[in-house]
């Protein structure tokens, strides 16, 4: 392979590798939610899925050679003009702070429901629970 082609490919990989990692995380989370039998594993899958989206937004916000969005020497005598390229994009960080809180809240409610299910059925395996549900229904008839 020619050296320039290789360099191009390397550039391409460097420019996108974050997003591929995020795609992989999303797939893992989604798969766990659909295919796993244990309810807590499903909840963990849900959290992985949400985290992947959080990483996605944060990746959008990066700028090479930029620092965190806190203005240095903003006050007083050292005040100087501000270049937008020197600071990361603050907006996605704000949005994801919200999304993190939302995912924590969802996790809390999901765990509360799982605790309630465990109290009643004494298992967190979904197929066991479904068996018990079927048994309950046939008892009623």
């Amino acid at each position: 392979m020619d050296a320039p082609v290789l360099a191009d490919m390397l550039d391409f990989v460097i420019a996108k590798y974050n997003y591929w990692g995020i795609a992989a995380l999303m797939m893992i989370g989604l798969y766990a939610m659909i295919a796993k039998n244990n309810l807590v594993k499903k909840i963990i899958g849900m959290n992985i899925f949400q985290t992947a989206i959080i990483l996605f937004f944060i990746s959008i916000a990066t700028k090479w050679d930029a620092t965190i969005p806190i203005i240095i020497h903003g006050h007083g005598a050292h005040a100087h003009s501000i270049h937008a390229a020197d600071y990361m994009n603050p907006l996605p960080h704000v949005l994801m702070l919200t999304a993190i809180v939302v995912s924590v809240a969802t996790l809390g409610v999901a765990l509360a429901l799982a605790v309630g299910i465990f109290q009643r059925y004494e298992t967190l395996e979904e197929d066991n629970i479904l068996e018990q549900l079927k048994a309950d229904e046939s008892n009623l008839r």
């Binding site: 460097i14 420019a15 996108k16 590798y17 974050n18 997003y19 591929w20 995020i22 795609a23 999303m26 797939m27 990746s59 959008i60 916000a61 990066t62 700028k63 090479w64 930029a66 969005p69 203005i71 501000i82 937008a84 390229a85 600071y87 994009n89 603050p90 907006l91 996605p92």
Partner: peptide
């Protein structure tokens, strides 16, 4: 996702639309 990632602006590009429009004014 993979297909769409080919059209994404490159990672860390300060001139990507997401880093220009509103965010510049915030900074």
């Amino acid at each position: 996702l993979l297909y769409s990632s080919f059209s994404f602006p490159p990672l860390g590009d300060p001139h990507a639309p997401a880093n220009r429009h509103v965010s510049d004014d915030y900074i």
